[in-house]
């Protein structure tokens, strides 16, 4: 057992076996979250730094909760309050953090590959909490965990990801993970929001929503990233909603056995209607709870690989 690397940079470089090991480990942590005392002493004495160079509320909170429930020591560092705004380079910031003898660094950065850069320069284990439009591996893992709760066998499962694929690191991590576990992945969205050549990742591409979601088991809706639409990728929000928005009528096209997922935050009334977001097949809040357990598993497995190497 045990993972090959102490870092979690993306799901692209993880094997099926490694992904399954993280998911199976997360099961024991998920149980802890249902106990009266939702905390274990496992990572006492381990220090984790959360480096968020890009705004984040839920991912940062989820990581912080996971760290605290494992009894590690936590330091937070966010771009707005850091010396980055005073012109310090990423490398200098990181060397300073290293000098503080941190064991694990959780990093979000707007530049794809920033955590990879970091992992080659410091001794600490690096966990990618989202790098630009590249990957968001812990989101991918928590999505896989949640899907497995409803569909234990992923082989042949029909998953459709709808929305802004182009700007979505979530989509990329999900595609890597789902493909490795044998699911059948399709993407759907306006041509301007689907990167050219993405079929090479082993997915089908649709621009017609009804065709894409017919018979699907998992309908995964992405947030239409309003802040990234300045490039004129869609004519109007209204048109996007009409062509790619999901309402209760659309759910009838899915398989009888289906779930609806969303990484949050949702734009209610844009990619998802109120009714769909609150229906009993929507597992969106379950994803959030599972996220803490999955992040606990990632931190635990990374931590178990750092100490022996240092000695």
């Amino acid at each position: 057992m045990s993972l090959k690397s102490k870092h979690l940079l993306g799901l692209e470089d993880k094997t099926k076996g490694e992904i399954l090991e993280i998911l199976d480990t997360a099961k024991s942590f998920r149980k802890i979250l249902d106990r009266p005392v939702r905390k274990v002493p496992t990572l006492r004495g381990i220090t984790v730094a959360n480096l968020f160079f890009e705004a984040s509320t839920r991912t940062r909170t989820s990581f912080e909760l996971a760290e605290k429930r494992l009894s590690s020591e936590v330091v937070n560092f966010s771009a707005s309050t850091s010396s980055l705004s005073k012109g310090e380079s990423l490398r200098d910031t990181v060397e300073n953090i290293e000098a503080m003898q941190v064991d694990i660094v959780v990093m979000r950065h707007s530049a794809p590959g920033a955590p990879h850069f970091l992992s080659k320069r410091i001794k600490a284990a690096v966990v990618n909490a989202g790098d630009g439009t590249h990957e968001h591996p812990t989101q991918g893992l928590l999505d896989l965990y949640t899907i497995r709760e409803y569909f234990p066998k992923l082989e042949g499962l029909k998953v459709v990801i709808v929305g802004d694929i182009k700007h979505s690191r979530v989509a990329r991590s999900d595609i890597w993970g789902l493909n490795k576990l044998g699911a059948d992945v399709a993407l759907c969205g306006p041509p301007t929001l689907i990167p050219l050549g993405i079929e090479k990742m082993g997915v089908k591409v649709y621009h017609d929503l009804d065709k894409a979601i017919k018979g699907a088991n998992v309908l995964y809706l992405l947030r239409l990233q309003l802040e990234r639409q300045k490039g004129g990728f869609i004519p109007s929000l209204r048109e996007y909603t009409q062509l790619f928005g999901i309402n209760s009528e659309k759910l009838k096209l899915l398989s009888d056995d289906y779930i609806v997922m969303h990484p949050g935050p949702m734009n209610r009334g844009v990619e998802i209607t109120q009714e769909v977001a609150d229906c009993d097949r929507a597992v969106i809040l379950r994803q959030v709870t599972n996220g803490v357990a999955v992040r606990m598993a990632v931190l635990y497995l990374s931590a178990s690989l750092i100490r022996p190497l240092e000695k």
Partner: peptide, 17 residues
């Protein structure tokens, strides 16, 4: 998850819950 030798053992056994 409650061991006191977490930082000493090299091959972590899988936590089974």
């Amino acid at each position: 998850l409650y061991r006191d030798d977490f930082q000493e053992i090299i091959d972590q056994p899988q936590a089974r819950g």
